[in-house]
Design a protein around this nucleic acid. Sequence first.
DNA 1: CATCGATGTTGAG
DNA 2: TCAACCTCGATGG
Length: 339
Amino acid sequence: MPEGHSVHRIARQFARNFVGHRVSVSSPQGRFAAGAKTLDGTTMTRATAVGKQMFLEFDNGLWLRVHLGLYGAWDFAGEITTDATIRSAGGRMGQTNQRGTELPDEGTGLETDADYLDDHDGEDSIHSIGAPRKARLRMSESEREDDSDFDFPPPPVGAVRVRLLTDTACADLRGPTACEAVSAFEVQQVIDRLGPDPLNDDSAAAEDRVVARIRKSNQPIAQLLMDQSVVSGIGNVYRAELLFRARLDPYTPGKQVPEDAARALWRDWVHLLDVGVRTGQMMTMDGLTGEDYRKAMAKRDDRHWVYHRTGLPCRVCGTHIVMKELANRKLYWCPNCQQ
DNA sequence: CATCGATGTTGAG
DNA sequence: TCAACCTCGATGG
C-alpha cells in the first residue's frame, strides 16, 4: 500500500520516539520470534528509509529491515509525537515546528525533522509537530489517529509480527512483506539494488543515473517508473500521476523519452515526494486553493488527475480516462492529453 | 456480514 | 506470467 512518502514518515516516527531508547523486541504472532530475540534489549540507534524499505539500526550492530508490501502497517501507541496534519486533513494546527531527536550525521537516509521542516513555505506548510502525548496512531499508506483511552502497553491484537516496546512507546507491525534482522552488510546489499531516492540523494548525479537508466531501456516508461532499481519509492499512484503531469504516453519506450522529459520526471518526483512527506498524503494536483484543496485533502478520489478515475472525464480535456493492466498493475491515463 | 480489491514484491514455472 | 503472501477499508446485499 504505502508508496515512498509513507515509509519516510514512518521512519521519522521511529526517529522521534524510539531512537536513543532501549527496546524490548518480541513477536506476539511468533513468525519473527528468532529475529526478535537477536534484537531484544538493545538500543535503537537509527531509523532510515530508502524508497519503500525501512531500516532500524540497533546498538548490537544488527538492523531490522521492514517492507510493508501491499497492506503492511505500523500501529504506534503510548507517549508519541504525532503530526497535526494527520488529524486535520487540510486544516492548520499550531505551527510549533519543534525540532526532534538529534541524530548522528553520518550516512544517508537519516530521518530528522529538520529534513522536512526547513525551508518550506506556502500552501503546503501545514506541518506541525506537537509535544509527545498519549495517543494511538496507525501508519500505513494513510494515517489515522485514535483518541480513545487505552492501557499501556496495549495488549497485542491479531497477528503482530513484531512489537517494539520502550518505557513509553510501543510499535506493532502487521502484514509486512519483509521483516528480518540483518547485518549492516545486508542492509547495504539491499540499498545497492535500489535506484536513487530523492530524500537521500537529490544530487545531479542521482538525476543523471535515473535519466540514463530510462533512456537506455526499451521498456515502457510506465514500467520503468515502477522499477525500484531505476528510481526508489514510486508506486502505482505516483506513476500514473507523474506521467499525466508530464503529459507522457505511458507506453513510450524509455529510449524514446526525450532527455528533457526524463529529467522533468525525476524533478517532479522530487517535488511530489516532498509534498507527500510533509502532508502525509499523495496530493498530486498542484495549485488547488481554498475549498478545492480542503476537499482534495479529505477525499482520496479528489486529489488525483487520472489514478482510479477509469471512465471519468479528464480534468483537463474531458476525455474519458482509460485503464489497462500492465505487468499485473493497473495503469490509468488520459489518451488525449498523454500522447 | 460476506466479498472484493489494493498505494507491492518474491519466487515458481 | 502468475500465484502467494496476508490485512483491512470499501462495497453491496
